[in-house]
Design a binder for these strands. Sequence first.
DNA 1: ACTTAGTTTAATAGAGTTATTAAATTGGGT
DNA 2: ACCCAATTTAATAACTCTATTAAACTAAGT
Lengths: 206, 206
Amino acid sequence: MAKNSQLEESIMKAAEELFLQNGFDATSTTDIAKSAGCTQALVHYYYRTKENLFQQIFTQKFQLLISHIHEKNNQVNDLELALRNFVDSYFDTLSKNRQIPFFLIKELIMNEERRQRMRMRMITDAGSLQYYTDWDKLIKSEIAKGNIRPIDTMDLTIDVVSLVVFTFISLPLYSDLFEQNEEEIRAYLQRRKEEVITLILKGLRK
Amino acid sequence: MAKNSQLEESIMKAAEELFLQNGFDATSTTDIAKSAGCTQALVHYYYRTKENLFQQIFTQKFQLLISHIHEKNNQVNDLELALRNFVDSYFDTLSKNRQIPFFLIKELIMNEERRQRMRMRMITDAGSLQYYTDWDKLIKSEIAKGNIRPIDTMDLTIDVVSLVVFTFISLPLYSDLFEQNEEEIRAYLQRRKEEVITLILKGLRK
DNA sequence: ACTTAGTTTAATAGAGTTATTAAATTGGGT
DNA sequence: ACCCAATTTAATAACTCTATTAAACTAAGT
């Protein structure tokens, strides 16, 4: 038995790159095969359907984001520190995976079924719920203590996510428009990270 | 001469709806024809290529955004008022055209050529440049007067755009996840608008 | 040497895509 | 009544895409 061909993994690697770069629709199994260095039929031999192959990559990237949120700031009871940690690590993770935000949002928006699957995953995931409850408690207590202005937890969450995620969604446009090279992009991201933290912290004062 | 068929316009209307809803790739000229109530060949008779038809819609939606930014806050020299006006009218425009932000960003990100065309349009458009220069002057003067914290004009601009635009990009996910009906969505958007204004104004204080 | 399971390819069915062409239809102008 | 230009359709060329099938290949186990 000729086992454990390296092509199976090559296909997955090629698919990951192409799907992240161009999305589900704009990537054909022929493209994947060419990039992996095999016939198109082999892609289907190992993964049967394109959707199947895509699903694995999508789930993996989705988990990467979620798990990262969970592992950080577990028992932090200092809001400023929690926010700093969150934005900081979120920015760092996404800086190393810049296509992920647009990739996930695009595929979720453009596919009702994927959206339903995500929904199910979120509302049945005890970890996420617990995380949000703690987060909510922390904010409410800070408001009660008069340390920050009154604000709904969901609003604050969306503020933070908007500022972080949109940075990466708009990055291709920004770097193209201002002809930024890799080094300039890194500096830009660093600056944005600090501005986001500043805006949120200052914007929460009474 | 049988002139002025109503089908030419029906095709454009159908194309607009389908392109905005599903994007360029996921819309076929057959879909457009079916929705317009004519043969697929007629779509090509009037617009020759799918790209052509798309181009007109894309440009129109792009202009809608730009022109709207220009017409508002022309000679406002009160930063708080300028920001309030901007966020307010931006939110209102997008509330009536909710798919536009994602539509434009997706098609720009996924097509290098469109990105280049946008770039050319932006850097040769005297109106936009003038607008940005005035805006920059206003912010610098407010910083000099000590009314707000030091902040780069581009950073502030990106802060505002992030908060506004991401609201609409993530809206399909949000409304699906929390099963919002139309009325709840309107209330949500109203609340977001106020929160964005608050966050920006408070976040600019020293 | 030979079997056998896993790997890989060539070929192709079947559906869908854009775009073109030639023919048919329509209705106002003369 | 007829012309003629604009409109509309049917048919089809020339792709591309996913998925399957049958055949060929490879190497480990006996």
